[in-house]
């Protein structure tokens, strides 16, 4: 039996967590290590860092952050953003993260998934997929939702799995930032398609949403703004899920 996972997601720019983090009792609410430690203590099962730093400083700030987080937090964590070559993944994994997430770069060059999976194992190759809902089904987009691709969700998942993706982080652009719940239809489609774990992303606002995602086939729920703004803690979220009969790790 594998427990359902709750995964806080932190957006990082220039080594600082961004997006209005408002924890109480934190000296410096933008410090990734401080926040990671806080989420770990609350019972987070994993962490995802999405590095949105642009430009050439990106690589070094990301590596420094990964090294610092890895010394302080002893749960698995994933880093995404700016990984275009297997060497980028190599550097991040050696710095101490457990998985790397690739998105646009994998759509442009699907061999990237194969390269990462061959070198480090599928278990650390996370494919992040962003989709918009259309009348003809879900369509994969890249560049933070700005660029449409030719891929239908189903076809891209088949291809990515064949290429060695070990886990899929599926974000509904329609629901992202809404706090109105995950897009359940895309999760159902993806979970029917996948033999690897599925992480639901985009739209979490309350415990009920995670429950719905798990029932739709997700193995894990990514949570962001609802946690960062201090209205909800991982501990409370998990307590609510346990009351609903969901098996989660309790701390």
């Amino acid at each position: 039996m594998v427990m359902k996972r709750i995964i806080p997601c932190l957006d990082v720019r220039n080594g600082r967590v961004v997006k209005g983090v408002q924890f109480l009792n934190l000296q410096d609410s933008g410090d990734p290590v401080e926040l990671a430690t806080r989420y770990d203590a609350e019972g987070a099962d994993e962490l995802v860092f999405l590095d949105i730093t642009a430009g050439i400083e990106h690589r070094d700030t990301a590596l420094r952050m990964v090294e610092a987080v890895a010394k302080a937090v002893f749960i698995p964590f994933t880093v995404g953003g700016g990984i275009r070559r297997a060497e980028d993944a190599d550097a991040l994994l050696l710095a101490g993260c457990d998985k790397v997430a690739v998105n646009s770069a994998a759509v442009r060059r699907p061999e990237l998934l194969t390269e990462i999976a061959h070198r480090f194992g599928s278990q650390c190759a996370v494919l992040a997929v962003d989709v918009w809902r259309t009348p003809e089904g879900y369509r994969v987009v890249v560049d933070a939702g700005r660029t449409w691709t030719e891929w239908k969700l189903e076809d891209w998942l088949d291809e990515a799995q064949r290429r060695g993706a070990g886990e899929v982080l599926l974000t509904s652009m329609d629901q992202d930032g809404s706090n109105g719940g995950y897009d359940l239809e895309s999760l159902r489609i993806a979970s029917r398609r996948l033999r690897v774990p599925l992480i639901a992303s985009g739209g979490f606002g309350e415990a009920r949403h995670a429950l719905e995602a798990f029932r739709a086939g997700a193995d894990a729920a990514l949570v962001a703004s609802a946690l960062h703004t201090g209205g909800l803690t991982v501990r409370r979220l998990k307590a609510q899920l346990i009351q609903e009969g969901v098996e989660v790790r309790s701390c």
Binding site: M1, V2, M3, R5, D45, S122, Q123, G166, E167, R195, V196, P197, D219, A220, R249
Partner: peptide, 10 residues
């Protein structure tokens, strides 16, 4: 079962 067994178990 999904393989590998990946995640948290008792």
């Amino acid at each position: 079962l999904k393989v590998p067994h990946m995640g948290w178990s008792l």
